[in-house]
Each structure stands twice: as C-alpha cells, then as structure tokens.
C-alpha cells in the first residue's frame, strides 16, 4: 500500500489555526455574498423592487461563464467581463419587458412577476441545458491555495472576494461621485421631483436594473471558477442576498457590505463552533434579531 501522510497540524496550533480558518472563511464568503447582493441592494434602493429572479440571474451568469470556458476556452478571470455585460442586457431587458409594466401600480406585483421570471429562467435552463452539474476545470486559479496563519485560503474564492470589494467600491463611487449617480440618487429620493428636474427616470430605472444585473453577472463569472453550475444553484444565494440587503438597510451599499460580512462571519462561526447543519439557521436568526432592534436595517433611512 502506498505510504503517504496527510498533513495534520499539531494540537497546540490547532485552536488558533481553526479560529483563523473560520474567520477567513467567514470574511471571504461574506464578501462573495456582498457581490451577489450588491445589485439587489441598488435595485431595491432606487426602485423599491425586490428582484425575486436575482438568484436565477446568478445561475444564468454561471452558465454563460461555463460555456465560454468549456467551448471557447476563456478563463473566468477574463470572461467575467463578458458575463457582466451579458447580464447587464438581460437584466435591463427584464426590466423593460416585465418589471416596468407592473411598477408603481402595486408593491407586490413586481415581486411576484420576478418570481414568475425566476421559475421561467430556472426551468428554461433545465430544459435546454439538462440538469447535469457542470464543473469548469483547468482554469488558471483552480486548486491553488494560500496558507495564512495556519488557515487554507483557496485562491478562486479569495480573488472573488477581493474583486467583490473592488466592484462594491466602484459602485459606491459611481453612485456618489458621478452625474449619473446623482441622477440615480435623486430618482431614489423622489421620483416626481427628479422628473421635474429633467431626469428621464425611465431610463434611470433601466440603467439601474442593468447595473444590478451586471454586478451579479460579474459574481457569477468568478464563482464558476469553484462552484458547479446547475439550474438550482442560485436558490440559496438568492435568499441570503435578500437577507443581506434587508439587514444592511434600504438602499445602502456600505450597509450591504457590512451586513454581508456579518452574515458570512455568523455562518462560519455558528457552522464550526455550534454545528454545520444550523449555519443557515443562524444567518436567518441573526436577521430576525437585528431587524427587531433596528427595523430599518443597520443603515436604513
């Protein structure tokens, strides 16, 4: 029999190694949740619409990245640009065809319409792409692991997490410092007043939906480097994104980031120090507890 030895840390360093692993995993997963949720936060903040199809947009982005990778050999490190662009258009189209016609009349209609959209997208992909799990292999980042303070930090997730911070930073800058961003903020604060100021709020809404989709498109592009793609892949990410956005507060990008990191940490710590099977219970319980203390989320206004 082959004689090999699995690497095993010594007992003394284990507690610290475990802690740093849990901490790093939590921060990384949290940053990734933030990237997925960023688009949702933007859409909710400006249009007061919860996009129920957000998880399915993620799934479509992952499929796009997978096909780009397996058919054309483009690595996720580069194809994220294409998936981001593709999702921008898909999301804007969803707005124009579906959401725009139900907005304003009711608060529930856009939510249920996007719910219908999510069922449509999921089963369309199931029908066209079969339910087989697709895993992209042979990518540049695959399998590489860094070791920090006794913890293993996988490169694909690390890059995704860091990039998420970059994207969120850019998004925040865009909203706060550019003219279009001001127009978006104005529309978010008071649609009629913005119209009176000459802002074409219809176009703003299309743009916002597009940007929201673009963020999740970028997320999907990166995540394909380490996750398997299948029609149901977006489901849990979708739920967590809703909780992130609501926890962070209506319309706040820094709030979404903070909430996402908090959720990632709670998931990670509860998962290891209590039991992995209740890690998501802890996440949802966290939301319920925080929201009772601060009914508009951490940074909501």
């Amino acid at each position: 029999m082959a004689e090999s030895v699995c690497s095993r840390p010594s007992n003394g360093g284990t507690i610290l190694a475990d802690f740093s692993q849990v901490l790093i995993d939590g921060l990384m997963n949290g940053a990734i949740y933030a990237l997925v949720a960023a688009g949702l936060s933007l859409i909710w903040g400006v249009m007061d619409v919860i996009n129920f199809a957000h998880g399915e947009f993620l799934m479509v982005a992952m499929y796009a990245c997978y096909w780009l990778g397996s058919l054309l050999g483009i690595d996720p490190l580069f194809s994220w640009v294409l998936t981001g662009a593709f999702l921008f258009f898909l999301s804007a189209a969803s707005y124009l065809l579906v959401v725009r016609r139900c907005i304003g009349r009711s608060a529930m209609a856009p939510l249920l319409a996007t719910f219908g959209l999510s069922i449509f997208l999921k089963n369309f992909c199931l029908n066209r792409f079969t339910p087989n799990f697709r895993l992209l292999s042979g990518t540049i980042m695959e399998g590489r692991v860094l070791h920090v303070m006794g913890a293993s930090v996988p490169l694909p997730q690390l890059v995704t997490a860091l990039f998420s911070l970059v994207v969120l930073g850019c998004l925040y800058y865009f909203i706060k410092r550019t003219r279009i961003g001001w127009a978006i903020q104005a529309t978010a604060m008071d649609r009629e007043a913005a119209e009176l100021m000459g802002i074409d709020t219809g176009r703003i809404f299309t743009l916002v939906f597009g940007f929201g989709g673009m963020c999740v498109g970028i997320a999907g592009g990166f995540m394909t480097s380490y996750l398997a793609v299948f029609p149901e892949v977006g489901a849990l990410f979708s739920l967590i994104a809703f909780v992130v956005v609501a926890l962070g507060g209506f319309g706040s990008i820094p709030g979404a980031l903070l909430a996402a990191l908090l959720i990632g940490l709670v998931e990670s710590f509860a998962g290891f120090y209590i039991a992995p099977v209740i890690k998501y219970v802890a996440v949802f319980a966290l939301y319920v507890v925080v929201i009772l203390i601060r009914p508009k989320g951490l940074f909501g206004w």
């Binding site: 139900c102 319409a113 219908g116 089963n123």
Partner: peptide
Amino acid sequence: GAGVDQVIYGLLIIFMMV
C-alpha cells in the same frame, strides 16, 4: 421535455402580474 409545465407556469404568473 423536462420543465415545460413550469416554464408555462412562470410565464402565466408574469403575464398576470403585468
């Protein structure tokens, strides 16, 4: 084929809400 019934279901919901 798989999922066609659900595709119709999804489209119906969208149609009604719009």
